[in-house]
Design a protein around this nucleic acid. Structure first.
Lengths: 147, 147
DNA sequence: GGATAATCCTACTGTTCCGATAGGAATAAT
DNA sequence: ATTATTCCTATCGGAACAGTAGGATTATCC
């Protein structure tokens, strides 16, 4: 049960755009380089993000991407829904009526619980939070030496 | 990000053994039938469970499986670890040193948080809990008509 | 207006993992 | 001896994952 790279890469990329928000566009190439992601693969991910409106694209030279909304208004939950589809850990969690044993299944309740636990974390984390984390961690010297 | 069938089937099967505990053995065939799982596939799952000691096998006619411990002492966390391996949602959560960007990665903290959220649910659920849930749900008539 | 640097788009591909199947060997009760 | 069970190794089809290929379009800069 691993998180697929699609959503993870997407999240990492979006942090870069959050850091540049609202003044600068960042090109796919730059993000691919700093985040060490295959540019062509990231391209697909960005396309999905653009289609959902989470980012806007600026074409042509000196183009790139910009967040479609302030980073404080974008949760990881939304990012995952765009890049991974349903966050349900088992089909029966979301689509009731699929499993004939649904009503009497004692394990389903636990799968629901787990899914909710994950979603709580994802919905509770915004790009703003991640960007701030990165600012703090990214340059530890400012924290360590300025005591 | 779906839960694989291996762990889910295993959990559902183990509930059957929990219900029979401690007096009766249950055969793989019976479980496969009542839980609608491919017998041959369930066989592999049971083998893994046996190797881990979670169940004991009784060979020969009228054989089957029995829980290796009281159901109250077996958590779903343990079941998942046996059947799915590491519960970490991303490799970097468990194996530190794999990712060169580990220290400054703002997303890793969230993957850790999500993994912990899942594990809390899994560790907090025992086979006893599931068995009781099933007893309650399995025969709703006893609850509905005895008001 | 041509070179350049970016996004856009469709398709393809190799690999791995998932879920399941096949066919029999060993064991024990009847 | 028969039967019902667990045990074991190997195999397989398909789907999903992660990434690649190659070019079309758009806008800036000189």
């Amino acid at each position: 049960m691993q998180l697929c790279t699609r959503a993870r890469y997407g999240a990492r990329a979006l942090v870069e755009f959050a850091l540049a928000h609202p003044d600068n566009t960042v090109s796919l190439k730059e993000v691919a380089k700093t985040q060490r992601i295959s540019p062509k693969y990231l391209e697909q991910i960005m396309r999905a993000l653009k289609a959902s409106g989470l980012v806007k694209a600026v074409r042509g030279m000196h183009g790139g991407y910009v967040l479609g909304r302030p980073p404080s208004k974008i949760t990881l939950g939304e990012v995952f829904r765009v890049l991974e589809g349903s966050p349900a850990l088992v089909d029966c969690v979301e689509h009731t009526g699929v499993c004939p044993m649904e009503e009497i299944c004692p394990t389903r309740d636990t799968w629901v619980e787990m899914t909710k636990a994950i979603m709580t974390v994802l919905e509770g984390t915004t790009l703003q939070d991640l960007a701030e984390r990165k600012r703090r961690k990214g340059s530890p010297s400012t924290l360590i030496y300025h005591i």
